[in-house]
Design a protein around this nucleic acid. Sequence first.
DNA 1: TAGTTTTGGGACAAAATTGTCTTAAATATA
DNA 2: TATATTTAAGACAATTTTGTCCCAAAACTA
Lengths: 145, 145
Amino acid sequence: MRVLSKATVYGLRALVYMASERERTGYVSIGEISERLNISFHFLTKTFQTLTQHGILESYRGPNGGVALTKPADQLFLTDIVHVLEGVDFFDKCLLGLPGCGTFAPCPVHDFWKAAKEAMKNEFDNTSLAELGEKVTDDRFRLVA
Amino acid sequence: MRVLSKATVYGLRALVYMASERERTGYVSIGEISERLNISFHFLTKTFQTLTQHGILESYRGPNGGVALTKPADQLFLTDIVHVLEGVDFFDKCLLGLPGCGTFAPCPVHDFWKAAKEAMKNEFDNTSLAELGEKVTDDRFRLVA
DNA sequence: TAGTTTTGGGACAAAATTGTCTTAAATATA
DNA sequence: TATATTTAAGACAATTTTGTCCCAAAACTA
């Protein structure tokens, strides 16, 4: 049951890593993140560029440059990231791929799937990067194989 | 939120179509299904071949040949199909893609995701092709754009 | 100013998924 | 037996996703 593309998975892991570095101030370099999390530097860079373009991150070039969250981590939610990286229709797709599947013209699994999506969206709406970062900092949860 | 590959989506739609043809006896040709559901004939054929190889369908060649469910539609569940087309580890994957993510070494979203997967699996375990086929027969639900 | 570090952006390659086509094998019918 | 119908199987192409590489632009440091 694969729900997120690799680009999104890497982006999320990287953002949670940033959020987990609580006390730290200033920019974090993409090189550091990619090393720590074992993610391809260039691939992550591209994902981060779209996050920057969409206001999730701000970046700064040069020595001591890098990226930083534009808001405190407790104000950035999974839904925000997923909307940018997977599209705003992420929680709005038919399980059987039918375009325009809805209450008026539903597929046979519409009712169940609608509920499942809502539960998922609810969780994503209420889970912040800060919350996930803390779990990593407290060391009971991991971000890397 | 895309969960199933196109191969699985097409396969499922086709199977539900077969189940929806209640009174019918004998084989249904792949050509008929692909026409009715607007699915590429050759692509569907390949998916059906793997379903045949895994005992979900039986096939018969020649005039009046086609495919048929190996069991009554009320004894075939979504989980059966998904296990064949997506793999038996379908309900067992980490949202963040970490290999071996589990209670002992969880990712930060493990608890939520585990529950979500269980809910999903529970629904798939208990939804039969017959149930979905009926919904289509009764005409309140659709399988095609 | 020159050199180093870092992101930005594009070209490009590899791999996986999706889709098309051709031929063979099995079966029925005339 | 010859022909038509249907699935089986594999080659192949197109598309999307994933991954790599190179060079430019921005910023710091000496």
